[in-house]
Design a protein around this nucleic acid. Structure first.
Lengths: 145, 145
DNA sequence: TTAATAAAGGATAAAAAGGTCTTTATATAC
DNA sequence: GTATATAAAGACCTTTTTATCCTTTATTAA
């Protein structure tokens, strides 16, 4: 088990792919996306459908349709993808699974785990969906395997 | 989904409980442990059985038997519990699920995610199983709910 | 208006995680 | 030895996650 679910891993990869492939208002189809980020096509379709319903990405049906990102969407943090797919437990939950864990009623790991959580949250909220576009176009960053 | 699996969350809580309850060579039974850390009893039994087989904790059957920790076990890092139950993907895996992700073939998050991972790994390898015993005895730290 | 295209939606299946129960093995006390 | 207490082991069951497939709906273009 990684930090994020498979659903979320696939989602992040797909959204970053869509971001750098559609800067010009064009759209990209599920087949191409799934191949490019190496995920099961119909499972990814469900995930993108979900992200589209939640407004993280945009989509249009029919010929020349597909998935794309409106310009403002490129400024959104990656954390939005995670929250949409996995919820925000990973950013706020107790490391040992205690629901009542807090400053007043801390678990043994509370203080230290909070630092890690916060660093993860900070990283995912300051990183935007669009910020890797140049490097993805250059091919210096990978989205598959 | 949190950072660790339920199995692992339960395991950590149980081991810390055993640690502070058995410093004098005594043992503690599954019933008491499960109640104290608020987990399903027979599921926790499986988890402790696994940790015992792997040498993270010790156990003895029969009357006055139960789970306990040999003195050296108290010095082991919490990371050992995580590795035994969840493997070490959480400490070393790619944030986006790429198996080939590396310095030479990095995913977009590689550099930043590595910092988070390393902080988590550092925290869990420098924290020992026995280090919370005093506070647990005092009752200033919580292991349930 | 029709045909083609592509995502949305729904039903289902397979695999993994989470959880329960019963039996067996082992240690202790009498 | 016998009875008893306790963890180990194994067989199950349930829920969630991961995954597939088929039908419907929306859009476009001819």
């Amino acid at each position: 088990m990684g930090v994020f679910s498979k659903t979320c891993e696939y989602g992040i990869r797909a959204v970053l792919y869509i971001a750098h492939r559609t800067t010009d208002g064009s759209r990209v189809g599920i087949k191409e996306i799934a191949a490019a980020v190496d995920t099961p096509e119909s499972f990814l379709a469900k995930i993108l459908q979900d992200l589209s319903r939640k407004g993280v990405i945009q989509s249009i049906k029919g010929p020349n349709g597909g998935f794309f990102l409106e310009t403002p969407s490129l400024q959104r943090p990656l954390a939005d993808i995670v929250k949409a797919l996995d919820g925000d437990e990973v950013f706020s939950g107790c490391g040992m699974g205690l629901t009542q864990c807090s400053e007043k009623n801390p678990c043994p790991l509370h203080k230290e785990f909070k630092k890690v959580r916060n660093q993860l949250a900070h990283m995912m909220t300051t990183t935007t969906i669009g910020q890797f576009n140049k490097e993805l176009l250059k091919g210096t960053l990978s989205l598959k395997k």
